[in-house]
Design a protein around this nucleic acid. Structure first.
Length: 562
RNA sequence: GAGCCUGUAGCGCAGUCUGGAUAGCGCGAUUGCCUCCUAAGCAAUAGGUCGUGGGUUCGAAUCCCAUCAGGCUCGCCA
């Protein structure tokens, strides 16, 4: 039953406005003492040549419905109260029903697209969290999500770490040095940056190495394969650590050449042009995007060359309805250009591409620089959080055994990290403040977990009888606030899926938790009056359901105890 | 020079798409609350020219124009 529709119809009957217009205007008042719905009368004022307040009073006297408890004019607004029992029953009983969409899509999700020359850093972490969370949100609505990756495993930056290893590595391996593979490779990337300061000709040597690589020089390929595999093995561990799975990974080393043909065909067909230096370019000036080089003057391919091929290949592999690229916002222009070029090429998937751009993660000292080692990498960041969480748990519950301690610390640390990063709107830059991220109070993942654990604790002490709930007993303001909030749950999920915004869910769960904790303090749930207690137990069970499911969409576990 | 993003309390943010009632939340500060379902909690107080200036509107943090500040980007990097 949709009360908003019913009320809209009723108001429409008594005014000149059509039902849809009324529906649009009808709002939920900012405060519960103003009713469940409110209709502002400003629009009618002009037409009827009466003050909005007068119209409100007028309208109020005309509306009577059996599901409406009370209609009241309050200034220029008509406020509606739905009969509590009907409203509450309606909200709580429909909460766990599935959301049914008209159309379920097959969606490719690209994340996080690492380079095989250094470990994953905080930016990748943000990327991975956005990937995992968006996948869960889309899955929740019944879409099929195919997580894929693109691995940038070739190019000059890769050769830099290779060269440093060749010159200074002494056949050291991750095993012999006891390092995780991606850190091991990253060590040589940093080494190169250090050495090149005193020896600038290393730059040329790296370029030379790239040339050898492209020519298929055996020794170079050997180093490349070795280091690439070390790095990928390291990523595999990290991905597991952050619950990242891929159905397929695409490697730039395998696709970089194939894009050329598409470009050359495009040139033949007159889609693209050759400029005076011999580079092949796409003219996108009429789109306000300037000109874009697609193939270098020397005939070698660049990033966009392989991106075009990659898109084609993926569509061939999966014939998806949509593809979402989770890539930093510094590449907004790149993707605008890419999507335009896919259109020029008449690829059928050109208008199904979406770039989910996310902002920079800064450290208090400034931007992270992997070449200078001023970087917080994802693995160490996470393990520091777990250590910190362990101390917090131990302090509160000194008697826990090690297993339980580790489980809880892990769960809490994940919650802290995921929430801290996902609560920001993706397109915003933010500063990663180590101190703040280690705080488990206030607006944080652990706060929501704690709320969940509190509900579980009550449930261990009193049994709910889900039959014969007397909804009319839930009449406190705090209970109404909670029920109103629960009613929003599905809309929030739909909205966050529509715009790929897990942050909406994060903030929603926070608000719900705040309402519950307030309720918890002011109201005793386990009480003598069985009927009232049962109604309250029913309510908090629904809150638990929403917290549990909502947290899961952020890839955060909801603990029974904390 | 052009494009995109951001600007809301001391600090960090939500709200802006889709205009509506007294602009919310967290941290920090001050003050209360554990004989009572988990105090990783709750309540209260203090803290606001919603960057600035115009415009549209009965009504603007929200829409439009201008402007300032910061960030990102703009054919052969990824």
């Amino acid at each position: 039953m949709n009360f908003k529709e019913l009320i809209s119809k009723k108001i429409s009957d008594h005014t000149n406005l059509d039902e849809c217009k009324v529906f649009e205007l009808l709002e939920v008042p900012p405060k519960p003492e103003l009713g469940d719905f409110a209709f502002p009368c400003f629009l009618l004022a002009k037409e009827l040549k009466k003050s909005p307040a007068e119209i409100a009073t007028d309208l109020t006297s005309k509306i009577k419905e059996n599901f409406i408890e009370k209609v009241e004019a309050k200034g220029p607004y008509v406020n509606f109260w739905i009969k509590k029992e009907i409203l509450v029953k309606n909200v709580l009983e429909s909460l766990e029903e599935n959301i049914v969409l008209d159309k379920k899509d097959k969606i490719l999700l690209e994340s996080p697209g690492p380079n095989t020359n250094k470990p994953l850093h905080l930016g990748h972490l943000r990327n991975m969290l956005l990937g995992v969370s968006n996948k869960k949100i889309l899955n929740y609505l019944g879409h099929e999500v195919i997580p894929v990756d693109v691995v940038n495993d070739r190019g000059i930056h890769i050769c830099k770490s290779m060269l440093a290893y060749k010159l200074f590595g002494n056949n050291e391996t991750p095993e012999s040095s006891g390092m995780k593979g991606d850190y091991f490779v990253g060590k040589y990337y940093v080494k190169f940056a250090e050495e090149v300061k005193n020896n600038p000709e290393l730059e040329d040597q790296a370029k030379e190495m790239l040339k050898l690589w492209e020519e298929g020089d055996e020794e170079t390929l050997d180093i490349w394969k070795k280091m690439r595999d070390w790095c990928l093995a390291g990523f595999k561990e990290s991905f597991k650590n952050f619950d990242v799975v891929h159905e397929k990974s695409y490697y730039e080393s395998e696709t970089y050449k194939a894009g050329k043909e598409i470009i050359l065909n495009g040139l033949e067909n007159g889609l693209f042009e050759k400029d005076e230096d011999g580079a092949i370019i796409a003219n996108l000036e009429d789109k306000g995007l300037g000109k874009k080089v697609l193939l270098r003057a020397d005939g070698t391919s660049i990033y966009i060359t392989q991106d075009i091929e990659l898109a084609r290949q993926r569509f061939e592999d999966y014939n998806m309805d949509r593809i979402v690229y989770i890539v930093g916002s510094e590449q907004i222009h790149h993707f605008k250009v890419l999507f335009e070029i896919l259109k020029m090429l008449n690829f059928p998937f050109a208008d199904k591409c979406h770039h989910l751009a996310y902002g920079m993660v800064y450290l208090p000292d400034g931007k992270m620089k992997s070449r200078e080692g001023t970087i917080v990498d994802a693995d160490n960041f996470k393990s520091d959080m777990v250590k910190m969480a362990k101390l917090e748990v131990k302090e509160r519950y000194p008697d826990l055994n090690d297993d339980e301690l580790n489980t809880r610390a892990d769960m809490i640390a994940s919650a802290a990290v995921n929430f801290f990063i996902l609560k920001y709107d993706a397109h915003k830059d933010f500063v990663y403040d180590p101190k703040q991220s280690l705080s488990f109070t206030g607006d944080s993942g652990p706060y929501i977990q704690y709320t969940h654990a509190r509900i579980c604790s009550i449930q261990r002490k009193a049994n709910l009888n889900p039959e014969n709930i007397n909804y009319s007993l839930l009449e406190l303001d705090s209970e109404r606030n909670l029920i109103n909030k629960l009613e929003d749950f599905k809309d929030i999920i739909l909205k966050s899926a529509e715009n790929y915004r897990p942050s909406l869910i994060a903030n929603y769960l926070l608000e719900l938790s705040q309402l519950f904790n307030n309720y918890y303090h002011e109201t005793q749930i386990i009480i003598e009056e069985k009927e009232l207690m049962n109604a309250r137990l029913f309510l908090i069970n629904k809150i638990k359901y929403v917290l549990n499911n909502g947290l899961s969409l952020l890839n955060i576990k909801a603990p029974e105890e904390m």
